[in-house]
Write a protein that binds this DNA or RNA. Structure first.
Lengths: 174, 174
DNA sequence: GGCACAGTGTCAGGCCACTGATATAACGTA
DNA sequence: TACGTTATATCAGTGGCCTGACACTGTGCC
């Protein structure tokens, strides 16, 4: 598979994979896919999906508990998506949700005892994957990669013709 | 709330939780998310999803048409996923599927006339997004980024304890 | 008081992606 | 011929993610 050494020696865009493998975005996609694939694989041993793990991790780093909307912003997904993730976590007994004392509409999620334990175990597994990535590059290269990725992200976001992005990620109520 | 009062003088985004934004994998994830988000946005103007566009693009680059399994491998998804994508494309009249002359079980997908037209239009839009990414980096940086990403991808894949990956992506029959 | 507005939570519908299981077609070999 | 293997296609189920729509709470403004 991936017959990258397609015939002619010129490194230019020959014609075998004319347009797909030479696009920079494709390299990003493959790296992300490899990363999420590995995390999915190791997290399956503790019966967690990646989004579930991320939500638990954010919750663990909060002392007071978080609302669904706050979690959605932290995990960079829509509130509707977070609703389903939280429903699955609650069904497993890893979190509880109680109405806020200041906001009768708001449901504050907090980790249960077993949720806290499982989160620590899952984080160990996920960190190991992240470590494999870090081990492949020295510190200079890591900084370089991070810098290039951040500039790429900014380039894709900044040419935003519609200022509607604020609506999708409203700021904290404060 | 986000005021973690992290008084440390680091100029980084102070509101970041201690363990999430400093992971290298998170930078990859955000770049991929920005990329796919932009592509999704521009492709919506031609009523296509990103996976649909990718399948069409691969099909366009093939002269003879491709089977569902071949498309699945090229797009790096499972055959089951490709089945649903192809069903949606066929329903829109962008492709046709006919039983292969050499393999009565195989359904060969080919672009229709309108499918070919729409693919060209969609590719123009998608290329523009990719171009914004390329414009943000000079050629040296592009090569650097690609190289670092490829090494990252390899690092995540190579420590594969089970040689079962071959089963998920069997080689071409040829 | 009445009313718009922002923030929150949820349902409905649709697409994508995976695992697991089933059915069929062609090819190999005994 | 019978059998197993390989490759294919598809169904069923789960989960995540999105858009669109709706309902409710709280605040501020008139």
């Amino acid at each position: 598979m991936t017959d990258t050494s397609s015939g002619s020696g010129t490194d230019g865009p020959a014609q075998a994979p004319p347009d797909l493998h030479d696009r920079l975005g494709h390299a990003i996609k493959r790296a992300e896919q490899a990363l999420i694939g590995e995390k999915t694989r190791v997290l399956r041993t503790v019966d967690l999906t990646v989004p579930q793990y991320v939500a638990l991790l954010v919750l663990q780093q909060s002392t007071t508990g978080l609302s669904g909307a706050q979690l959605a912003r932290a995990c960079m997904v829509t509130p509707q998506t977070m609703t389903t993730v939280l429903a699955n976590l609650e069904h497993k007994g890893l979190i509880t949700r109680e109405t806020s004392s200041v906001h009768r509409k708001v449901l504050v999620a907090t980790l249960t005892r077993s949720g806290r334990t499982l989160t620590r175990k899952a984080d160990t597994l996920a960190r190991a994957v992240e470590q494999r990535l870090a081990d492949a590059l020295d510190t200079t290269e890591q900084a370089q990669l991070r810098h290039l990725l951040e500039r790429s992200t900014a380039a894709l976001r900044d040419t935003d013709p519609t200022p509607a992005r604020a609506a999708r990620h409203p700021e904290e109520p404060r």
